[in-house]
């Protein structure tokens, strides 16, 4: 399969801070590629480098055969980039925003009109085409921004949290649309929704502190976790000492906490009994084993790295 994106030893420094550290990977044409990682790990910086909005400090890359550093203009004509923030021209109506975007990318008026109406119809924007952005809710503005990115039918889509703040129905509509067009499209997306990655991504990388921790397909990453078991433990009161004891236990691969619920990844079902012993007497309310999900693999990976550092 043809390669759409190749990055080699990409590093991006902002003063003394290294946001992206010697990173290399390739993305094949037609792939939905996800980048996941904790906040501040360099995901958005990486995406901006691919969008030619940031020049790398070191390294090289090709986007659809065009050199990332030498030919940014040519690359921009082939990609669609949607950043994390909603950026619309507040002085123009939604329709004018769309027309302006089409003109910026050189679409003729007839083609632009057909695409705008087609997408507006599909994503239920017909009624608000003549409104100004400021009068619309954040989720709608975000949808408009995504639709605007699709107008130019780019060969490569670079999306930073594309479905954040969108209702589930809209998010599904968008993924249905993208999947329909995937034969002509390569998608690189940043997302914090592991469920979304499991649902749509062909391949993902997990990043932390500017480098790649894991690179593989969703199946490969889940397969690597197969012998593991996830235990959901509900405690009466959160106890930091108890939490640390569990986290540091030899048979615990990873742990995360959401208020009084711990998600503990263990090496095998046999470790269950040992984990129960680690809770303070009377503090454990419920203890349920379940199958491994991608979110568990994410937590496992980050915990492993944290433990290596410590």
């Amino acid at each position: 399969m043809a390669v759409s994106i190749t990055l080699r030893n990409i590093t991006k420094k902002f003063g003394a801070v290294t946001a992206v550290n010697n990173l290399s990977f390739g993305v094949e044409h037609g792939t939905i590629f996800a980048i996941v990682g904790p906040s501040g790990c360099g995901k958005s910086t990486l995406l901006k480098i691919m969008a030619t909005m940031l020049a790398p400090s070191q390294g090289s890359g090709y986007i659809n055969g065009q050199n990332l550093i030498a030919r940014p203009w040519q690359i921009r004509q082939q990609i669609g980039y949607m950043g994390q923030r909603v950026i619309l021209d507040e002085q123009l109506t939604i329709l004018e925003n769309f027309v302006f975007h089409c003109k910026l990318h050189g679409l003729d008026d007839q083609e632009a009109e057909a695409r705008i109406l087609g997408l507006a119809e599909r994503f239920d924007l017909m009624d608000i085409l003549h409104e100004l952005p400021e009068s619309l809710a954040y989720g709608v503005r975000r949808k408009i921004q995504l639709v605007r990115t699709l107008l130019t039918q780019p060969k490569i889509l670079l999306l930073d949290e594309p479905t954040r703040s969108l209702d589930r129905q809209t998010a599904l509509k968008i993924w249905d649309y993208l999947k329909e067009h995937r034969s002509s499209l390569t998608i690189v997306m940043i997302t914090s929704s592991m469920a979304e990655v499991e649902h749509v991504a062909d391949r993902l990388i997990i990043m932390n502190r500017g480098h790649i921790l894991v690179d593989g397909s969703v199946d490969e990453i889940l397969y690597a976790q197969q012998p593991n078991l996830v235990l959901e433990a509900t405690v009466r009161d959160y106890d930091e000492e108890e939490y640390r004891t569990i986290r540091d236990a030899e048979f615990v691969l990873g742990i995360s906490r959401n208020e009084n619920v711990y998600e503990i990844i263990t090496k095998s079902p046999a470790a269950q009994a040992q984990i129960i012993q680690l809770f303070k007497p009377g503090n454990l309310v419920a203890f349920i084993p379940r199958r491994t999900r991608l979110a568990d693999a994410f937590i496992h990976t980050l915990t492993q790295e944290q433990m290596i550092d410590e």
Binding site: W73, I79, G83, L104
Partner: peptide
């Protein structure tokens, strides 16, 4: 000035057919 208020709206414009 409007571009600054609109949070780097220039980003979007520059993704268009501008050499630099």
């Amino acid at each position: 000035a409007t571009n600054r208020r609109n949070q780097q709206w220039q980003e979007v414009i520059l993704m268009g057919d501008f050499p630099n």
